[in-house]
């Protein structure tokens, strides 16, 4: 589970130490934390500060700059609809509206069961196959409004 637990903190510590010889290690370390916890908890930030001497406030600033790093816990599945130009003219907004309705949440919110967070998706380089919907790294192309509930239930089951 992607959550704040002692076990995950241990895992993070090991992973974080891999970057001792890396120049400019912060972004790769934040990716590790995001992957392990589903967000970047204060505890992890403090560990980075202790090991690497990067001030906590600075780390916070970096986290807030990048779309893919989160301050708060996020769902198991990051689900979103591409808002790029080509997807937009294939009416991607309607897909996003349907997604919000189905999950009962807005962009950047997480469902109560902790399963889904709706994220912003910008062009993912599959513009000739849009509209595109993504769930973590999985891409669904030429999605219709009707597909949305099927895709969601696929992940509810697994």
């Amino acid at each position: 589970m992607r959550e704040l637990s002692n076990q995950n903190l241990e895992t993070f510590k090991t992973k974080m130490m891999k970057y001792k010889k890396t120049k400019g290690p912060l972004i790769p370390i934040l990716h590790e934390a995001q992957e392990i916890f589903g967000y970047i908890p204060l505890e992890a930030q403090q560990m980075i500060e202790e090991e690497y001497g990067i001030p906590n406030a600075f780390i916070n600033g970096v986290i807030s700059f990048y779309e893919m790093f989160y301050h708060e816990p996020t769902g198991e599945y990051h689900i979103g609809v591409c808002s790029g130009t080509s997807c937009h003219i294939n009416r991607s907004k309607r897909i996003l509206e349907e997604l919000k309705k189905e999950l009962g949440i807005e962009v950047h919110e997480t469902t109560n069961d902790g399963l889904f967070t709706i994220v912003n998706v910008k062009c993912i380089g599959r513009c000739s196959e849009g509209p595109n919907l993504t769930v973590n790294n999985k891409v669904y192309s030429q999605v219709t409004v009707e597909d949305v509930s099927h895709i969601i239930s696929e992940f509810k089951k697994s």
Binding site: G24, L26, I27, P28, Y66, E67, K122
Partner: peptide, 25 residues
């Protein structure tokens, strides 16, 4: 290899360098 984190501006060459250095882009 360095992975971005969802900031378009990091395609701008100097912002990209800031990002590799571990800063805001």
């Amino acid at each position: 290899i360095r992975l971005g984190a969802g900031a378009f501006i990091c395609g701008e060459e100097t912002a990209l360098m800031e990002s590799i250095e571990g800063k805001r882009g």
